[in-house]
Design a protein around this nucleic acid. Structure first.
Lengths: 184, 184, 184, 184
DNA sequence: GATGAATGAGCATTCATTCAT
DNA sequence: AATGAATGAATGCTCATTCAT
């Protein structure tokens, strides 16, 4: 009762599928055939469907995982002393981690942008808190809101990915946004 | 064989196809079925293939055309007196003109980002000139280059589309970028 | 303009598909894979879809054809002098023609019974007229309506098919229904 | 090996599966996924397969059970005084008991009509006895045999199901058959 | 014996591309 | 040159059946 040995394989498969999905989605976006993901995970297509009812659900699960990692980072930043620095540091880390791949372009697409209400909203809430504190600390202009920030960030992430921007370019583009976000 | 009286019809067809493709791609992105484009153009699918060897080629041709129109606008801006105003006005018009449609999101996608080298480079050259003049006029910071600007712009365009941003959001996000581009 | 030679092949294909579908549906019901129908018709699956947007539509088209043939027979019976004989003759002919196959079982299924409103309703209307006249002529009991008749007929057709009833059995079972339909 | 203490559990499982199968097949026909039946029975899919080698075998077993219940009712009717009333009452009860469900439509389908020979033949034998006695009592016409009756009944059952016939329609259709079965 | 995870063939449908007319 | 009919590979998803635990 305490240990369920059968689940071990299943859990491993689930994780293999999720990992394969994250990799595949990251590389090619949501258009990767599900069979391809199954193949990469070394399982049959049916196994993927056992764990995720639809391809969409698999995509969401893959992204939820990614989003939750971002949320953790954001939450960690809430503990910093300097609210302004914490805010900008968090942004920089999202980028620096190489976290922006093809999948985010699809995940942030119009139909999906608000679909993962739970985790995505949670992330936004934490980012919103970071923003609010940074604004209160006088480090960020006060004429923009969370939505504005998210749009700007999405755009930046996507662009960085599209251009496979080297770190120099990333830094300079980031500097523009950073400076644009500061109070004039 | 020596005379080609049908050429006029063919050219008209080519243009009709291109126009239909632009409209369809703009509205629905590259995923529009080619048959749908043919239907909108009032020609058969075979005719589309007579003028464009693949759907990809048609997409590229459609985008080239769009890019060339942007280039025309940019060139017009080169004639303005105030280089700074001309630069920012041009940017604003790209957005304001409703120029950011679904097709651009696909066109700027990773696989395709550099596919339209000729016309896109021409556009970049003109934008580069606008940028250079604006920098010389002291209206734009000098620590960024054309590549940086293009990355920022692409991201902004895509994000605006992803979020179906209303004009208020567009303005605020644009203001961040604008201010970020100005000298500190 | 008067003749359209291209349509000749298409029409032939459409008819081949329809014929193959009728044969296949008659033999195995709606569950026949569409690919099987395409194979029997000697065309690709895509060709089937060119002519019929969904499998359901193909099934309907196949049945409409069958239903319309029945309607023709029913209409012919309307011209007979003896309304009672005409009514019972028509019923007998529906059976005698070997017209009751597996497809009807599906076509008369709950979801579909009223789906082909046009042709099926037309058939019912004509049968209703035959019934009404037979009732007026005193050849059929008056305490049943068209719906009752249709249910009885469906059941009879299906049963005859299920049991691959020989003509003797068909006649005897039909006699029961016939006598049951007459005024007591 | 000598003692089989688990047999009791196994038997209970077999019965639970059978009961779940009957319920599921009755409601949705043979197309119910086997997993769904396993779920309703509270067992794993593998357990279903331990007791029934294929889904088809499970379906047959479920129907055999249903048929045997009908046989019991028929046998009970043999004890009645009035042979004619017993015959018609039995028929009515098959219908009235809500006995005609989706599963029968599938069970009576062309491929399966004769699959349950043993129990079905037994039922037929008893019904045949009911019929014979009713004929002897002068309550049923003598120019039809058991096969004819069975065909008529199957058709009626299926039709009633196809049309989701309300009780009024059932009664009227049944009256037609009843009257058709009586001596002229 | 039981479990339920895994399999993989099968199905309806779409669409880029080819080709007979 | 144009047409649009035909093709057939590809895709998401289901489900009977098998098998490792």
């Amino acid at each position: 009762m305490t240990e369920r040995p059968l689940r071990a394989d299943a859990r491993r498969n689930r994780e293999r599928v999720l990992a394969a999905a994250q990799e595949a989605f990251a590389a090619e976006g949501i258009s990767v055939p599900l069979d391809e993901i199954a193949r990469r995970a070394g399982v049959g297509a049916g196994t993927v469907y056992r764990h995720f009812p639809t391809k969409e659900a698999l995509f969401e699960a893959a992204m939820v995982d990614r989003v939750e990692r971002m949320t953790s980072r954001a939450r960690a930043a809430l503990n910093a002393d300097d609210a302004g620095a914490a805010f900008f540091d968090f942004l920089q880390r999202m980028i620096a981690g190489g976290g922006v791949k093809r999948d985010l372009v699809d995940a942030l697409g119009p139909q999906r942008a608000n679909a993962y209400e739970g985790p995505a909203r949670e992330l936004q809430t934490v980012i919103g808190e970071l923003l609010f504190r940074a604004q209160e600390a006088g480090a960020v202009r006060t004429d923009i809101g969370l939505n504005d920030l998210m749009t700007i960030l999405k755009g930046f992430f996507v662009a960085v990915h599209i251009d496979k921007a080297d770190s120099g370019l990333q830094e300079r583009a980031f500097a523009v946004i950073t400076d644009g976000l500061r109070p004039r």
